[in-house]
Write a protein that binds this DNA or RNA. Structure first.
Lengths: 211, 211
DNA sequence: GCGCGCCACCTTGCATGCAACCTAGAGTGC
DNA sequence: GCACTCTAGGTTGCATGCAAGGTGGCGCGC
């Protein structure tokens, strides 16, 4: 996101960042005027931003009552993980349908994996989570299914929020994920679809166990 | 859709219906003022409706150039079908995880199937398509995965549009689908997850063959 | 005839104003 | 003390107005 030129875009990014980071707790009421005053813009673009966030199920706007940050149900983590698994399996099957993917794809996975190793070595959990997300996105993008990319992006946002508030990513999770990812990359390099899908399933199951 | 009380909601439903039905061809330029004048409301709620439609990838709004109805790429049908398969497989696995689903779920499937039989007998393709969509939604709802329901709803909208413009649903497709659905219901009644998933795969593959 | 620049029109983005509506709280009757 | 009403504040929904930006077409120079 280079430059949020429009006021509506600024309001959207501003509010979304604050919700995803957990700076605004779930259940908290936001008002359009409040955000508008913070950013020095009018209520109109803030209204649009709130509607977008409502469509992403991050905010629940009630007519003439205000907008509440959607609190996270314990089931939500399970739902989001399940959808991510479904989408990543489906896109992986397509991306690996004709054997190993092109070098650019593998290089992107390798680069992300290298970042993960460095972040893990440095104990930088934030950087690891970021690289982790990128790793899982590579094959989704490589599948060239734009709908899948759209859905996967929405899921990543919500999972980021879950991770901050429900899960506590510790060193052992980092190490475990890193190992899973290395195995997944190896399977992708050999174009072994079934093995890759099996690993995705295990990976998700492990995440789910943390709940 | 009981009563579109708000002006923004009216503008949304109005425009969406016209896009999905194919009344407005792909590539056609729409302007907010045009729709606002048609409905006798101001541009503000129309603007909001356009943004929602843009988020659903039905409309592409360009700043100060107008909004174009997104033309349908031939790949889009494949993408949408693939995502539907992924979501329906995932939700079916959960809904059937503990054997046969509750009676309400099976009854909903049976009711939709009965509507399909009647529509097929009467040669009413529109009614069949409607009941078809309901059938596929039953297990998604039964999975109680709200994210899946949200995604599946978006996919149904886009598939409806594809069906009107790319596919031509004829009597043989109706008969074929009806047969598939009956087999799927039987598998659901017996709680046979693997058989159900296999049938979903075949069903989707058959649809895909029409392209 | 052909290419180029300018201008008028059309479009959206945002600010502002007003009215409807919901909610919380004080005040009143019992 | 308790329930009820009514009012005052706050919030959104929508209309309107204005300005910035893009597009197409006309006219001019060649």
């Amino acid at each position: 996101m280079p430059a949020p030129s429009g006021a509506a875009e600024r309001a959207y990014e501003h509010t979304k960042t604050r919700i995803l980071s957990g700076e605004i707790p779930g259940g908290r009421l936001l008002s359009e005027g409040e955000v508008a005053a913070e950013l020095g813009i009018s209520r109109t673009p803030v209204h649009e931003a709130f509607l977008r966030l409502d469509a992403e199920h991050l905010l629940a706007v009630s007519s003439r009552r205000g907008a509440a940050v959607v609190p996270m149900a314990p089931d939500e983590a399970r739902d989001v993980l399940e959808m991510r698994e479904a989408i990543e399996l489906s896109t992986a099957r397509r991306a690996l349908a004709h054997g190993a993917p092109p070098v650019e794809t593998l290089d992107a996975m390798r680069a992300s994996l290298q970042d993960q190793r460095e972040a893990a070595a440095a104990g930088d959990v934030e950087a690891f989570v970021e690289a982790d997300g990128r790793f899982h996105t590579v094959l989704v993008v490589a599948s060239r299914n734009q709908t899948a990319q759209q859905f996967h992006g929405l899921l990543r946002d919500r999972q980021q929020r879950l991770r901050r508030q429900l899960l506590h990513v510790g060193p052992q999770q980092v190490a475990s994920s890193l190992g899973d990812h290395e195995a997944m990359l190896a399977a992708a390099e050999q174009g072994d679809v079934e093995e890759f899908c099996r690993l995705v399933g295990e990976h998700v199951r492990r995440h789910r166990g943390i709940l």
